[in-house]
Simulated assay, not measured.
Amino acid sequence: MQTPSRSSYDVVIVGGAIYGSSVAWWLTQMAGFDGTVLVIERDPTYQFASTSHTNSCIRQQFSNAANIQVSQFGAQFIHNFREFMGGNPEVPHLTLQSFGYMYLADTPEFAATLKEAQAVQQSLGAATKHMSRDEIAADYPFYQLDDIIGGNHNLVDEGYFDGGTMFDWFKRSAKANGVEYVTACVTAMTRAADTVQSVTLADGTVIGCGTVVNASGPRAAATAAMAGLSIPVVPRKRYTFVFNAAQPLDRDLPLTIDPSGVHMRSEGKYYLAGCPPDVDSDVAYDDFAFDHSLWESKVWPAIATRIPQFEAIKVINEWVGHYAYNTLDQNALLGRARDCPNFIFVNGFSGHGLQQSPAIGRGIAELIAYGEYRSLDLDAFDVNRAAQGQRFLEKAVI
């Protein structure tokens, strides 16, 4: 437990993983903003943070224009990472491995949905192609496609990048620019009428605040409750397996979204696969128990069926992490609480968080510094839609 150096801050951010650090760093880039910023993180090792368990992928293959534009800026940010970070030669260049996502459709209805999404993506400049089964087979002859009608694929600015390095430099650069980080746990908030006045730490320290940012990942609902607010975000388990193959493929494996619900992609000289559990229920914040039966019962059969060359494979690493799962519509919940406007949400990403952190971290910083989104219109993600039951329509959810 660390004690902050001040008794009050203009901005207090609860949670220091990818979103707490992205918002903090972007605040230091806002012209005219000179407020004090405190980031409170309960675990400086980030051992159980969703950020630490991410597969670090980015895609433009969404059906909603807002999600597409958010990820397009994400790709721009990755390609120009050092420049965004001020040109510091110590900042590494990030590489976006553009092997793309491959959505496979096994029903006419899903094929039509993919075709509609491709038209939206193409209208915004994405390079997504809608492909027939024969076209997929010509480009990727290792797939077994007897049950597949068509698919969507994009080889431009879509694939894998080093999300861990991006997070590290958000945090490191925020600190270098004057943001204070402390290791502590927020246990309470004091609210008067429509304003959060202070946060209380586990040791009893009370910190005054002008604005509170909820960047608590899967713990978002617990943080909101301290301010008398609610948000439909829960922890849900997601499993990842890294495996090698006795017969490696002769080309990159796109991030393939199989109709079974299993996805797989290249991971250097290895391969990576992931999936939700068969019963996708809410779990406790500290429940990271691993269901080892999933590999034999679900993941390996799907992989070996789709790619017969993967009949002989061996798991070399595996882990389980938590999605910050938005039970309303599996998309971001952003912005000011209507009845407590100095409490700002940046939550509920449901697996999209890392790829969306450059654009949405910037947007939340703009909202704090200027009272509005300036670079991209993020109003479609407004958190207050949850209380009204208004869903953000996004058909491409993994």
Rank of each mutant, 00 (worst) to 15 (best):
D139R: 15
N214T: 11
N64Q: 12
P277Q: 11
A188G: 04
Q121P: 13
L124T: 06
A65M: 01
E311I: 08
L249D: 03
A193Y: 05
N88V: 04
G86P: 14
A337E: 11
P108A: 08
F99C: 13
L253A: 05
G363M: 02
G100N: 02
P308H: 07
A273W: 10
D134K: 12
S50Q: 05
S260G: 08
E372P: 01
Q47Y: 11
Q2E: 15
H292G: 03
A174T: 00
V283E: 09
E267Y: 15
P308Q: 01
N326F: 00
N326I: 05
Q118I: 13
A31G: 10
L354G: 07
A227M: 01
G86T: 12
L334G: 12
P358K: 00
G353S: 02
A192F: 06
L124H: 04
C209E: 08
A245C: 14
Y103H: 02
A112G: 10
Q197R: 15
D43K: 01
A31L: 09
Q309P: 07
E180C: 10
G321H: 05
S198C: 04
A332R: 02
N177D: 09
V262C: 11
G178K: 03
H352G: 07
F343Q: 06
Y323Q: 12
T165H: 05
T36E: 03
E318A: 15
Q390N: 02
T256W: 10
A227H: 01
V196P: 01
T200H: 04
E318R: 05
Q144R: 15
A284P: 09
N152H: 07
Y271S: 00
C185N: 14
A184R: 01
V156T: 13
A245H: 02
R391F: 11
D194A: 10
R265F: 07
L253C: 08
S7P: 05
R191L: 04
N80E: 11
I149G: 07
G32M: 00
Y9E: 00
P301C: 09
G163T: 00
K129S: 11
A31S: 14
F33I: 00
L249I: 06
S8T: 07
V206T: 15
A324G: 13
Q47D: 06
S297V: 13
T195Y: 10
C275G: 06
H79R: 15
A224S: 09
F241M: 00
I78K: 02
Q330V: 14
S98P: 04
T223Q: 07
D157C: 13
L272S: 05
E372L: 00
A138P: 06
A176Q: 14
L229V: 03
L124K: 03
N331I: 06
Q247L: 05
A224V: 10
A396Q: 15
G204F: 09
A111I: 05
E158G: 09
A105R: 07
G353T: 01
F73D: 01
N64C: 01
I40W: 02
T165Q: 12
H292P: 01
E372T: 12
S123M: 13
Y143L: 07
L249C: 09
G86Y: 04
R338V: 11
Q121W: 10
S216P: 08
D203E: 12
Q388V: 05
P4Y: 06
Q47H: 13
P341T: 04
E296M: 14
I149Y: 03
Q69C: 11
V14G: 03
F288M: 00
R306W: 08
D282E: 15
A359P: 06
P341F: 12
A184G: 09
M226N: 00
V299R: 03
V186E: 12
K314Q: 15
L376P: 03
S357M: 12
I398G: 14
